[in-house]
Design a protein around this nucleic acid. Structure first.
Length: 446
RNA sequence: GGCCCUAUCGUCUAGUGGUUAGGACACAAGGUUUUCAUCCUUGAAGCCGGAGUUCGAUUCUCCGUAGGGUCACCA
């Protein structure tokens, strides 16, 4: 049975790269009818925290990347297991206790455990890159434990991967050079070698490994900005993998179905927020109005302008309009905060001159048209933007579209750029619509 | 610097010993019912360089070059 693993170190937030590694491990396992296991690599007691561990677990689960039995193996709780193998490997002569000065606290003598390096060439076959050969001589007798009760990373990884039955180690390219060390330890203990696959890295725009100095790297950051899990999964998968055809939009199920590690790229991929935005919007399109409202969760936005009333009828009617203009919840909220749609909630203020259509000589030309529109709208059906449009359209065709639509839109929005007048009229309702048009007429008259 | 990995439009990528080198994002232009957005159409944009193999290399080999990763008693 195929068993992959996701072994994060809880020394920081859930990195977007870790999420992608988890995704690929999950997809590979699923694809092969196997499972993924989870392991918290918290042997560094000074940097690991339970808070980070929980955040990582929550993040992976939020994405839907579940693992076998929900089980959480913690390396910090397995010292006795490591000790057993440490003693075994020392007894066999493949490792030895070395009395030397501590590197961490100079001046203090300690007894670390070192692997007796056979100084040989190691060749392993990477599922993505093919054969990779290292001469381990340069590694020296690497330290595998600070002492018998305090095993280090390379040792714990090898022991746990073996004990947890891991068949495929799929991890970031930054682990390639760790692989020969771990193979050396495997061979010293006598464990079988798993299959390795090293994924290309996610790169920042400057082509270096994506890190905090480049901006958001934590999954949580993207979640907060309003990237949906569907979009995150989809984008992460596309970063370094392709289905072999032109499909770019995937549901999670489709990814599971179509994933093939043979189609994983060798070279690193730059994280392109623009394409990510596009994908997010595409996935958002599938949301119904009520799903979108839930997605927005505006009640969690603490600094929403007072003017905006998320519960109001007008606001609910406004949502589809904003929705088609933004990629994320964050952009949505910013649009509101900028006051772009304040005209929905209060009478617009604007210079009368703005009412003048570009083809008109005088602003006064707009007045009779607005009067006519007023008249037509009094009889109009305000049940939809479409019905409002049909009430005005014949007249607009007769007198010229810009000639009436422009001043009408300005009368309703007070802006040079806004949604079309029918939509605005629908949102603010008949009473307010008629009032604003009348006000515009007054403005011209002044 | 040593070791290792990588190299197709700006970005993510498809692809082949002979192709008009395909798609997507982004960008530009035009259009769709006034502006913005949406949508549609069109466009610009790429095989890192040099040898070699070959009738023919973007594709295969080698050498460069460039970029990246890694060199802990962190993981």
């Amino acid at each position: 049975m195929t068993i992959t693993r996701i072994p994060p170190s809880p020394t920081g937030h859930l990195h977007i790269g870790t999420a992608r590694t988890a995704l690929f491990n999950y997809l590979f396992a699923k694809k092969n009818g196997g499972k993924m296991v989870f392991r918290s690599e918290d042997t560094d007691k000074t940097r690991s925290t339970r808070e980070f561990e929980q955040e990582i677990i929550d993040g992976l689960k939020w994405l839907g990347l579940n693992w076998d039995n929900d089980e959480i193996v913690r390396q910090s709780e397995r010292a006795s297991v490591y000790r057993e193998y440490l003693e075994k490997i020392i007894a066999s002569g493949h490792a030895y206790i070395s009395k030397e000065e501590s590197k961490n606290t100079p001046g203090v003598m300690v007894e670390v455990v070192r692997l007796r390096n056979p100084n040989k060439k190691i060749t392993f076959t990477d599922l993505i890159r093919g054969d990779i050969t290292f001469d381990t001589t340069e590694l020296g007798d690497l330290v595998i434990a600070r002492n018998l009760d305090d095993a280090l990373y390379h040792f714990t990884v090898v022991v746990d991967d073996h004990l947890m039955g891991v068949t495929h180690v799929i991890r970031g390219e930054d682990h390639i050079s760790n692989t020969p060390r771990q193979i050396l330890i495997q061979e010293a203990i006598g464990f079988d070698r798993p299959v390795y696959a090293h994924l290309p890295l996610i790169l920042a725009p400057d082509r270096s490994k994506m890190s905090k100095r480049h901006g958001a790297v934590a999954l949580e950051n993207y979640k907060e900005m309003g990237y949906t899990k569907e979009a995150i999964l989809n984008y992460l998968a596309l970063l370094g993998w392709n289905p072999g055809n032109d499909q770019e939009l995937f549901t999670f199920d489709e990814l599971v179905e179509k994933f093939d590690i043979a189609n994983v790229q060798k070279s690193g991929a730059i994280f392109d927020i623009k394409k990510f935005n596009w994908l997010n919007k595409e996935h958002l399109k599938k949301y119904s109005d009520s799903e979108f409202l839930t997605y927005l969760s505006l009640d969690t936005v603490t600094d929403l302008p007072e003017l905006i009333q998320p519960e109001s009828e007008a606001f609910k009617k406004l949502i589809p309009t904003i929705r088609e203009r933004v990629h994320t919840r964050q952009e949505f909220v910013e649009e509101i905060k900028k006051g772009e749609y304040d005209f929905v909630f209060k009478s617009p203020s604007y210079e009368a001159g703005l009412l003048k259509w570009k083809n008109d000589e005088d602003i006064k030309a707009a007045q009779p048209r607005l009067q006519k529109a007023l008249q037509l709208l009094k009889e109009a059906d305000f049940s939809s933007a479409e019905s409002i449009k049909s009430a005005l359209w014949p007249y607009a065709e007769e007198v010229g579209k810009g000639e009436i639509l422009w001043p009408l839109r300005v009368a309703l929005s007070g802006k040079e750029q806004s949604p079309d007048p029918f939509t605005i009229a629908f949102i603010i309702g008949p009473e307010e619509t008629l009032k604003r048009i009348a006000q515009a007429c007054d403005k011209i008259g002044e």
